[in-house]
Deep mutational scan, measured.
Amino acid sequence: MADYSSLTVVQLKDLLTKRNLSVGGLKNELVQRLIKDDEESKGESEVSP
Rank of each mutant, 00 (worst) to 15 (best):
M1C: 00
M1G: 05
A2T: 15
A2L: 15
D3K: 14
D3M: 15
D3W: 11
D3S: 09
D3A: 06
Y4A: 00
Y4H: 02
Y4M: 03
S5Y: 08
S5F: 12
S6L: 10
S6E: 08
S6D: 14
S6V: 06
S6N: 05
S6R: 07
L7V: 01
L7A: 04
T8Y: 00
T8L: 02
T8I: 00
V9G: 05
V9Y: 08
V10E: 15
V10P: 15
V10S: 14
V10K: 14
V10G: 14
Q11T: 05
Q11K: 08
L12N: 04
K13F: 03
D14S: 09
D14L: 10
D14W: 06
L15I: 15
L15P: 01
L15R: 05
L15A: 08
L15S: 03
L15V: 06
L15T: 05
L16C: 15
L16Q: 01
L16H: 00
T17A: 14
T17R: 12
T17M: 14
T17E: 14
T17N: 12
T17K: 12
R19C: 01
R19A: 03
R19T: 02
N20R: 11
N20H: 08
N20G: 13
L21V: 04
L21C: 06
L21F: 02
L21Y: 02
S22R: 06
S22L: 07
S22V: 07
S22A: 12
S22H: 14
V23F: 10
V23E: 08
V23Y: 03
V23G: 10
G24T: 14
G24D: 15
G24A: 15
G24V: 07
G25P: 01
L26Q: 10
L26D: 14
L26I: 07
L26Y: 11
L26E: 15
L26A: 11
K27E: 05
K27W: 03
K27C: 00
K27S: 05
K27P: 09
K27N: 01
K27R: 11
N28T: 11
N28R: 11
E29M: 02
L30K: 04
L30V: 02
V31E: 08
V31C: 08
V31G: 03
Q32D: 05
Q32N: 03
R33M: 04
L34Q: 02
L34W: 00
L34T: 02
I35V: 12
I35W: 09
I35R: 10
I35E: 08
K36T: 11
K36R: 12
D37N: 14
D37G: 06
D37K: 06
D37H: 07
D37Y: 14
D38E: 04
D38H: 04
D38I: 08
E39N: 05
E39D: 09
E39Q: 06
E39M: 14
E40L: 12
E40P: 13
E40R: 13
E40M: 15
E40Q: 07
E40I: 15
S41W: 06
S41K: 12
K42N: 08
G43Y: 13
G43D: 13
G43Q: 09
G43P: 10
G43V: 13
G43R: 14
G43L: 12
E44G: 11
E44A: 12
E44I: 12
E44T: 12
E44R: 14
E46C: 05
E46N: 09
E46A: 12
V47G: 13
V47H: 06
S48W: 10
S48F: 06
P49G: 10
